[in-house]
């Protein structure tokens, strides 16, 4: 059982790593290493080599605008160059709206007297960070169970024992990632282009059943031991509204593939965390002298309410 869990976790971690690695590869200009926001009103450009001070200190060589507003150039107040002449910090008159990607154009970059041409760069919040914030957001801050109140039937049904809860959580995470990715592809490449949005409910529920069936079959063939451990939960997964809610949210928010993956993973892991916490608490409640009218589900609801009160502490949190 333990090995099974460890294997699953390992697989999940590897998937996440792979996803992160592939995103980090995109480069924009060979001479510019990195651009990033700093403070509320700064953009920092890191060059691969030293740039000429005369070029760097001239504000007219830069133009910066928010992506949807190419006509409105942002006013650069001061420019500072680091002693090694590799880093330029542009300070703007007004605070930047860092939620928007900014487009930075650096014309005629000169380094040691040599002109290196013009670079157009997009400055945005670290994408990895953004992905990470989607993951953490779905997992903890906007936990689907405690702050979005979804998936409750299964949540209360399978949180009585810790082992059941963990099994359910893992199974659920796998299925939701599989079905959400399938749903995303179908939505992006079939439903949306052909304006069949109204079919999304039917399509998504069909996909969920399909992926449950697929996981069931594959598991049964590939790893019967794993199937024995988790097979019983597969039937329950389909009655969980999170699994249908995630594709719907993906469709509403127009996430890209990676973001969708993060959201689905976050939703699944968040459900796992919620189940784990709830089950460990309920195992203790089993022993408590709960008033008879509250025994069983009612007290579980009250405890979930207390959880939700505690999770209010996360309200308004934005990590990146």
């Amino acid at each position: 059982m333990n090995i099974v869990i460890r294997k699953c976790l390992l697989a999940a971690v590897l998937t996440v790593l792979a996803a992160f690695l592939t995103t980090g590869c995109a480069t924009e200009h060979r001479f510019i290493k990195k651009t990033a926001f700093k403070d509320t009103n700064q953009i920092v450009i890191e060059f691969a080599g030293p740039v000429d001070e005369a070029w760097a200190k001239n504000p007219s060589h830069y133009s910066v605008y928010e992506k949807p507003d190419p006509d409105i150039k942002l006013k650069i107040q001061t420019i500072t160059l680091s002693p090694d002449r590799k880093t330029v910090a542009l300070t703007f008159a007004d605070p930047l709206n860092q939620n928007q990607p900014h487009v930075l154009t650096a014309t005629g970059i000169t380094s040691e007297g040599k002109s290196l041409g013009t670079a157009i760069l997009s400055v945005k919040k670290v994408y990895l960070g953004y992905l990470f914030s989607i993951l953490i957001g779905a997992m903890i801050i906007n936990n689907f169970v405690f702050t979005k109140y979804l998936g409750l039937c299964v949540f209360f049904g399978t949180s009585q024992k810790k082992s059941t809860a963990v099994g359910m959580g893992i199974t659920f995470t796998i299925v939701i990632v599989v079905s959400a990715m399938m749903a995303w592809f179908l939505y992006q490449f079939v439903l949306r282009p052909y304006r069949l949005n109204f079919l999304q409910i039917v399509v998504f529920i069909g996909l969920v059943s399909l992926s449950v069936q697929a996981v069931d079959t594959i598991l049964r063939k590939v790893n019967p031991m794993l199937f024995k451990a988790f097979g019983v939960y597969l039937v329950l997964v389909i009655a969980n509204c999170i699994i249908i809610a995630v594709p719907l949210i993906l469709a509403d928010n127009e996430y890209n593939a990676l973001e969708s993956l993060m959201l689905a993973l976050g939703a699944g892991l968040g459900f796992l965390i919620a189940l784990f916490l709830m089950s460990s608490v309920r195992e203790r409640l089993e022993l408590a002298r709960v008033p008879p009218t509250y025994r069983g589900l009612p007290i579980a609801f009250v405890v979930a309410g207390l959880f939700a009160l505690a999770f209010l502490g996360f309200s308004g949190m934005s990590i990146f």
């Binding site: 810790k162 784990f276 916490l277 709830m278 460990s280 608490v281 195992e283 203790r284 959880f307 009160l309 505690a310 999770f311 209010l312 502490g313 996360f314 309200s315 308004g316 949190m317 934005s318 990590i319």
Partner: peptide, 21 residues
Amino acid sequence: KGGYPEGVCYAILLMNPLVPA
């Protein structure tokens, strides 16, 4: 990063359910 300037109370509340585990 959160919405409140102070977080001790919520932090304790959030750690409390972890105690049985």
